[in-house]
Design a protein around this nucleic acid. Structure first.
Lengths: 198, 198, 198, 198
DNA sequence: CGTTAATCGAGACGGTACGTCGCGTCTTCCC
DNA sequence: GGGAAGACGCGACGTACCGTCTCGATTAACG
């Protein structure tokens, strides 16, 4: 067992917590994650460094909590279901494209994605709290479509979803070409051609 | 004109260059990119720090050169063409899967991918020297398949390739599930169902 | 008037007071005054930090109280008077030498002496409660000796005492040579040669 | 053997060394040794902290070097010898009194004296480089006086000197009474009464 | 003999300084 | 002029304590 006794979270200062998260978001927006420092966050938040080290293991963890409001039921993530799988997917993908292109979200998200390559704990949190809930929502929507006969029997829906999401992710990460609504729709068309019965 | 006179590369010590690249690879393998430092590279290589700073703009650039042997014609990258697009793609993807799972390659590659999110120059080099040559090879192979009637007319082949490569890349980066030969083949099957005529 | 209402000493916990003083002595013995911290005293004593800050102005004050049991009448300090000033002084000086060499007393005493160079309040307490009562006892004994004709008329007895005590103190502080009984006796002999009539 | 390779003192920056020593003296004069910090010295001197840590083991060592100009032959310290031991001693003691009362010298000297109670290395340097050379000079002067018949045979001159110096030191350290020329002269008179033949 | 207000243990907080690491620049001496 | 070596100014790290500040939970004098 670790000899470092955990701090008492009931006595935690919510005021400081918010100030730290806000400061982190501001500073990332201003100068990027690479130039983000714990000292700067503490200074901007009007907080002692120890208060950050007490509650977060790394600056990435701070940023994560600032971006992902820590909340609620992962089941809450749900895709629309109008009965038309193609229309629903395109709706969702367009929204996703907009988020990927939103400059306020893009910087921290890219930073977290990059950082999670070397930070195991961060990677686990991202997967568990953000990525998987969304991917599971795709799986559930595909299950409904499969029952409705819009997706061929016997297809691994986990892979089906990746056929859709993978290309978007690839373009966004590699920045080879812009991630547009048109691109998302073409991907959806091609993927669904592969997934439909017959 | 820049006030920093460029070093004279004719007098460069090849011996030092190699020692630096080797040291960088060793150190990344031992402790990961996050703990890689210029000072450690210089010490391990038995080289002055200045010799690194003189020839490379960043530690990422050193690692890049160590991984990508600076090689010749990008056209050299070529996919097999047996006439059977499905077989050829599966051959290539299996090889790709093996590379992605090779622990010696994985660490530096992941590091460069992550770093390129914040390092513009590195991103440009990676795209230009590694990524695009490979993607263009896919495009050329798809063009041949399209002419042979194995891919439907009117399909954007750039997107076609991303349908194939994107899912692999997604799994590898997010580490949600293992990247296996079976996975690659299923992806190829589904993607080709979407790309074939009819 | 001060805005800080003085604590009510009638409600003070004697149990905590003792635990703090004991902890301070233990910790000084273990690691020296320089490494002594309020936090460590509180932890060792099983006491809140505030309980220390409430009752003592500094860690030096804690240690002082631990060493000097806050005792009664300063007049209580009295030198022996057998009528033979030389014998009496040597008796006292031998005891003093033993105290100076006692390792349990030496560490805290040296610490307080050192600290009092920069801590005015501590210096005042040490002088008033420890040093002066002892020096006054010497003065009173010398007065008796002077009346008995063992000390020349007209000699400033305050200085006489310093002739005796100063050398001991000098050796002890500077650690140039060991402070022994023999040394004390030689000092007493030489000093008394200077002080006696004729 | 220590694993910390010693820095190469031939490449040391004399400019930085002087700036550090000057800054230390200034800061001690302004706020006292207790408030002196390595960071403040570095900042005032326009120097990196590491440059201080590289060359000195503690802030006390910095101050010591600033006060004791590191120099020359300890034999250089010599007391006057007019043939009259009493006159010579009083001359020297008056000068000593003036130094002890000089506010510029007093602060750092007191600090070093206090610090040497807990810092073994500093204590050794002070003894070896400052204290002993001076005490030895007294011993040599007393030897001459003894040969001249002004000091009784058989007296331990090391103790003789402490009879003189001890009282001054005691008053100065304890601040019980002011250290004046008159005091020094009375001490010299009484001590010499004890030391002279017969 | 119960009330109640101060003290208590505990420890989070905003800070300051610590001593270390690594950066990128610079200087020196060697080949 | 390149290279090995490493001192330098600098900035950030993560830790240790400071002295102050809340929190219940005793606890002891007083009503």
């Amino acid at each position: 067992m670790p000899n470092k006794t955990a701090p008492d979270s009931t006595r935690r200062s919510e005021r400081s917590r918010r100030a730290i998260l806000d400061a982190a978001l501001e500073l990332v927006a201003e100068s990027g994650f690479a130039k983000l420092t714990i000292e700067a966050i503490a200074a901007r938040a009007g907080v002692g460094k120890q208060t950050i080290y007490r509650w977060w293991p790394s600056k990435a963890a701070v940023l994560f909590e600032a971006c992902v409001p820590d909340g609620g039921d992962p089941r809450a993530v749900e895709l629309p279901d109008t009965g038309d799988i193609e229309a629903d997917l395109k709706t969702v993908l367009r929204a996703t494209v907009d988020e990927l292109n939103d400059p306020r979200l893009a910087a921290p998200t890219r930073a977290l994605a990059a950082e999670s390559q070397s930070d195991q704990d961060l990677a686990a949190m991202l997967t568990e709290r953000v990525l998987e809930p969304q991917l599971q929502a795709y799986v559930r929507r595909f299950e409904a479509a499969q029952e409705a006969g819009q997706i061929a029997e016997g297809i691994d829906l986990r892979i089906a979803l990746e056929l859709l999401v993978g290309p978007l992710f690839h373009r966004w990460m590699t920045r080879t070409l812009p991630v547009t609504h048109a691109y998302a729709e073409t991907v959806a068309d091609l993927a669904l051609r592969g997934l439909r019965p017959r």
